[in-house]
């Protein structure tokens, strides 16, 4: 498999969409799930605006802002990693990937802090429909961040071993595409759940 991709990988620079097509099938499926979730959230909120507005104020907007910053920054780092591997600089690529993973870790820590706060107050999925959606949506996304970090780590390990080159770097593109999807979902989730009134 690696051998075949190596021989034909020279087209990867101009290829569209970037990365393995299979991941795009997966990304579309994921966006579909999140899309439905968002639509359902909007629908549920419409039927219960006061409840949603009231409990929205209990969320920690600063924490969410830090997390938004963390994810956007991490996406930027991933872009740099892709740029580095396109120039054949594997070690630089690894460093940018690690930086991106670190920003992901920041997200996880901040988000865990928020969860600890909620759970400390005895809030769970059955508390009310706002918390049901808030916890479901953010936790579903939280797991995606972990998943994205695992993927980036796998890409980083392979890059560290010299598995990618300037001409053969589909794997890096693939991991980057997934990470951008995770970031994108948060950029919709954040205003929808934390900000919109």
């Amino acid at each position: 498999m690696t051998a075949t991709t190596a021989t034909i990988g020279c087209s990867s620079q101009s290829k569209y969409p970037s990365g393995d097509l299979a991941i795009w099938v997966f990304i579309l499926a994921e966006l579909l799930v999140f899309g439905i979730f968002f639509a359902v959230y909007a629908f549920a909120r419409m039927n219960n605006v006061e409840l949603f507005n009231e409990f929205q104020q209990h969320l920690d907007l600063n924490a969410a802002l830090i997390n938004t910053w963390a994810l956007i920054t991490s996406s930027y780092f991933v872009v740099r990693a892709v740029a580095a591997i396109k120039e054949g600089n594997s070690q630089l690529c690894v460093r940018w990937l690690l930086a991106a993973i670190a920003m992901g870790a920041v997200f996880l820590v901040v988000k865990s802090g928020e969860y600890a706060h909620h759970f400390g107050q005895g809030i769970n999925l059955s508390t009310n429909s706002f918390y049901m959606f808030y916890l479901s949506l953010t936790f579903f996304h939280f797991m995606h961040v972990i998943m994205g970090m695992v993927i980036l780590a796998a890409v980083a390990i392979k890059a560290h071993q010299g598995g990618y080159s300037a001409s053969d770097n589909t794997g890096v593109h693939t991991g980057a595409s997934y990470w951008h999807m995770v970031d994108l979902v948060w950029l919709i989730l954040f205003p929808l759940v934390y900000v919109m009134r």
Binding site: M1, T4, T5, I8, G9, K15, D20, L21, A22, I23, V25, F26, F140, M143, M147, V150, I151, T170, T174
Partner: peptide, 22 residues
């Protein structure tokens, strides 16, 4: 080559594990 079997396989394993955890 844009759609590799190994990637499809990884998505299966990753997706299955992910949703099982959830």
């Amino acid at each position: 080559e844009a759609f590799t079997k190994s990637m499809a396989r990884n998505i299966f394993y990753g997706g299955a594990f992910f949703f099982l955890l959830l």
